[in-house]
Nucleic acid binder design. Structure first.
Lengths: 168, 168
DNA sequence: ACCTGAACACCGTTCAAGT
DNA sequence: ACCTGAACACCGTTCAAGT
């Protein structure tokens, strides 16, 4: 006699992501996720292999959000860079999760549009690395020497674009 | 009647850091650390408040290693950047730990020498952000489109230095 | 003064038993 | 076919009792 499904995989992933943002990685317990979707922890294992897979799904979910933000820009490096920062500030924990090696696959979604804008693998890597590092440091509170971070971000982007245009 | 000390704080921190590099953050359990220093887990709490503090001490320890590598260079941006990368590749888990917000204080040791080399807060931030992002992506395996990463790193550094020299 | 076993609360995960 | 309670192994942490 079949039992009606009391939750869904998307609901589980959404709950996990909310918990990640609200309470950090340690707050994403199977029990907390289960409670949020109205089920007991063991039931989650019908939809995900284990907690690691759940976190990978959360990373994928975040990556697709970021892709959507990218798609809403004009495709220029400037707008892509600012969309990247807006995403990181709105979803700091998800951003950090994307940087973990386990979720490295999700990085492709980030790199692709920038590669299209710069039309050069080397150039795309410089821009992506700089923006990723800047946001990592900003979120970690590493920019404590003051100054306007909005301006610092724009300045960095200008610097790199200028450098990429240098004579070879 | 005093009992002889069976371990020391430096030994505990060193064991924790070895475990971090060998088995990742989840491998740094109080029990595993205790076993390595020849003591039972509860005894660790005589030297550290809790696991979080232990990880903070590990981050400090790694930061001072990095400072030593910086001090062994000629102080130029080029050598600093390569020392930074050598450290990250030799201590990938420690490097990642340094990027956590809880350890953000340790970042100062990294930023200071670069600030001295560039003599500009903005310039130091661009270089540090780019290098940090590059290494994060390299360690996460995000550079899967091939190419020589040594060359890519040198190219990125050239690009940024050139950009910093642009006319304002 | 440091070390320990025992205990507690809390994890992730498995599984037999329910519907 | 999905859900659950019970159980297991394993955490971090506390603490009274040992020396």
């Amino acid at each position: 006699m079949p039992t009606p499904e009391r939750t869904t995989l998307p609901a589980i992933v959404a709950s996990a992501r909310e918990l990640l943002e609200r309470r950090g990685p340690a707050g994403v317990t199977m029990q907390a996720v289960a409670e949020r979707v109205g089920v007991r922890a063991p039931s989650l294992y019908k939809r995900v292999r284990d907690r690691d897979e759940l976190l990978r799904l959360v990373a994928e979910n975040a990556a697709s959000d970021l892709s959507r933000r990218f798609a809403a820009t004009d495709g220029s490096v400037t707008e892509l860079a600012h969309a990247y920062r807006a995403f990181a500030r709105a979803n700091p924990m998800s951003f950090r999760l994307l940087l973990d090696s386990e979720s490295a696959g999700a990085f492709r979604d980030v790199a692709d549009p920038i590669l299209e804008a710069t039309r050069s693998l080397d150039a795309a890597r410089v821009v992506t690395a700089w923006a990723t590092g800047f946001l990592t440091m900003e979120l970690a509170g590493a920019f404590r020497l003051g100054g306007d971070l909005d301006e610092a971000y724009a300045y960095g982007l200008d610097t790199i674009v200028a450098g990429l245009r240098r004579p070879v």
